[in-house]
């Protein structure tokens, strides 16, 4: 698939059934191309995090494939992960390390060893972490400050694809607003972004494609254009309810 808009992230018939029989993800198909933001909406236990875990090969798919830049993740996980940056929900990081030390470690793990401290500081400032916090230990950090460090790490890794698991949880409104701005910049830089969120408004604001998930299934998928003029919130509730009816 050597097209210009090559799918960077792709889930093909992706299913995950756990040992206890619970079907966490049911035949997911989605595609995120470079320069696209894909937002997965859904309640708790909808399968959003499972999908992201499959892309990271934290779990093996029962059937189907998660493909990153043409690489099937469960076949060549290390190669696939070179192309992914990841921001997890509510990461604690190392409490005894300073923000810079944390960033330094994870960025180096990402294979980027050429950065200087100044580069780290610049990015930390860009995601909204005050200068005075850079050399403080993470122990006293609030959830939002830790989240900002996590985002900085993802940016510094400079990967082609970015996976975001509830990135705005814990961020104050101002920081959330700045984060959306940041996502737009990243999109313009040509990243493929897959994010899971509870936040319908932000999703509508930033996403090129919105998918609604429930009980492991992708129950609705609309592009930004298709959503123009639609009330996403209403859609969300309708789909959830409709789906519930179907199940019942």
């Amino acid at each position: 698939m050597e097209s210009k808009n090559q799918p960077m992230l792709q889930a093909i018939d992706l299913s995950k059934r756990y040992e206890d029989g619970h079907l966490a993800l049911d035949n997911l198909n989605l595609t995120v191309e470079t320069g696209q933001v894909y937002a997965m909406l859904g309640g708790n236990g909808a399968g959003k995090t499972t999908a992201i875990n499959l892309f990271l090969n934290f779990i093996e798919p029962t059937t189907g494939q998660a493909v990153v830049d043409g690489i099937v993740t469960h076949e060549e996980p290390l190669k696939a992960k070179e192309r992914i940056a990841y921001v997890s929900e509510n990461v604690m990081l190392y409490p005894n390390f300073t923000a810079l030390q944390n960033v330094d470690f994870f960025v180096k793990l990402g294979g980027k060893t050429k950065y200087t401290k100044e580069d780290y500081r610049k990015v930390l400032l860009r995601v909204g972490l005050q200068e005075e916090a850079h050399d403080r230990r993470l122990k006293g950090f609030s959830k939002g400050m830790r989240q900002k460090c996590g985002i900085a790490i993802a940016i510094l890794k400079d990967a082609k694809a970015i996976l975001l698991d509830e990135p705005t949880s814990g961020l104050d409104p101002k920081a959330a607003f700045e984060f959306i701005h940041l996502l737009n910049t990243l999109r313009e830089e040509g990243k493929a972004i897959l994010m899971s969120t509870h936040d319908i408004f932000r999703a509508k604001e930033v996403a090129d494609i919105v998918g609604i998930m429930n009980l492991g299934k992708l129950v609705m998928q609309r592009t930004k254009d298709e959503l123009v003029g639609e009330d996403l919130e209403k859609l969300y509730v309708e789909f959830m309810a409709g789906y519930m009816d179907e199940v019942a």
Binding site: L56, I84, A85, E89, M92, L93, Y94, F106
Partner: peptide, 14 residues
């Protein structure tokens, strides 16, 4: 528990 394991292994770390 701190989530650092996920973050570390989201990189190409054997």
């Amino acid at each position: 528990e701190r989530g650092t394991l996920k973050l570390a292994l989201s990189n190409a770390v054997p």
